[in-house]
Design a protein around this nucleic acid. Sequence first.
DNA 1: AACCGCCGTTCCACTTGGCGGAACAGCCGT
DNA 2: ACGGCTGTTCCGCCAAGTGGAACGGCGGTT
Lengths: 258, 258
Amino acid sequence: MTDQSTGTTITAVERTAEVLRAFAHADTQTLGVTEVAQTLGISKAVVHRILNSLRAPGFIEFDPGSRRYLLGPTALDVGLAFLRHVDVRELARPVLKELSEQTQETATLSIRSEWHRIYIDQVTPAREVKMTVALGRSFPLYAGSSSKSLLAFLPQHEIDEYLEQTELRAVTDLTITDVSSLRSELAEVRSRGYAVSKGERQAGAGSVAAPVLDHNGYPVASMSLCGPVERFSEESDHAAELITAATRRLSRQIGYQG
Amino acid sequence: MTDQSTGTTITAVERTAEVLRAFAHADTQTLGVTEVAQTLGISKAVVHRILNSLRAPGFIEFDPGSRRYLLGPTALDVGLAFLRHVDVRELARPVLKELSEQTQETATLSIRSEWHRIYIDQVTPAREVKMTVALGRSFPLYAGSSSKSLLAFLPQHEIDEYLEQTELRAVTDLTITDVSSLRSELAEVRSRGYAVSKGERQAGAGSVAAPVLDHNGYPVASMSLCGPVERFSEESDHAAELITAATRRLSRQIGYQG
DNA sequence: AACCGCCGTTCCACTTGGCGGAACAGCCGT
DNA sequence: ACGGCTGTTCCGCCAAGTGGAACGGCGGTT
């Protein structure tokens, strides 16, 4: 996807886009002609004509009570059409590649499936000692950084439900198996924005993971960087930085507004 | 709100709106210039310029792989801005009036508040023997058609959680107080699309209710028609028809796509 | 490899559609 | 009633937008 356009543009169309964006970014539901004109630095007459042109197709409505304008339901149609087509795996692919190259570690993408977590993609570095994960294989939602980064950002009642119904069986010697310790760890993950694991899911494996959040702030995926645990002592701060920046970018792309 | 515009319009702006709508209504994520031009009956050169103009502000993106265009994240921004300001009570008001006039019964609007249901609006007919409800008063989420129509359409795990923690105390002699009977009733409500109550919440009161679903398919409100139970024996099929049509319309207005 | 059809992109002459300043009409507060 | 502010309309002007056609690239077929 490229957003650099090189061809001819139409000023009236560009102004239309700016008018719609003004409504998207406004604190108030309604905007007046004069207000929009001042914000965008174009004449009232032009703004009025643009708004008028957007009324019949339903992008804009006029409130005669306040004599101001607001977004109409077609705005929502178009927005939801965008959502229907978002495929997080496709969006994440180039990001995984970039992360793996930058760190020379394995980058993974996981999603939640019911009360489990599944790896759905990975990019491994061109190096001999590295981690690889089994795509499609399911792991418990409490063990490892990818799991924790998903679990931590679920709505509280879903976390509670999960912790209530799940017996925290050790996956490795280092897995957190005590509920109140896990709750503390989840609070830490939320506060930091990313999760760290050193041998909790896979003995000898270190990893850093952060969630990809959707427009509802719901964690729809988790991205991680992982490798042999020795390498992760030195790299973990840098990896954390990269992974949070990458997931933040992806989150925005799928509509997250936090 | 009025969508009949009477002032001057700009052709380029109108075409922009049509281009965006073409993407919203397309079955495929991507559309080509030629395709859009044919659908809308305008020249390829114009379509190309419109799409190009919408790229920098993020409404449209170009996929160099397929050489086709798709909606960009600004489309979602604008759509979500519409959602931020939707007031279901305001949207529902004219519909409540219409329903009450058509049936000569009381039309109500309820929302869920935690594990309760609250009446937030009503329109009563000009007739002496009629129901009125206490706005703002809270009722259990299992008793009465409005409650059942909200509960039935919650995600399964929320239903389970509610039924697990709630003691089904009788509100009237006819209230369902047995969990498995209520589960059957909820399945019936989901299958039918509406709920019926005869004396379950209020002795002597009959009602038909259906949920208003948002863009996630989540029940954000419930609309009902209610009156003395004798009148509801004869009217209930007709009322069900009206209430489901009305809630379907409202649901679509707030982004429901089922 | 050459050819063809199709597509997105660019070009350019033409004309009318879009522009913007200013006037108008309506609304609200004093 | 008056004044200020807003949304709406008017109208002369010209450049912005138009659309047909050519161009360049891609993929499939022979």
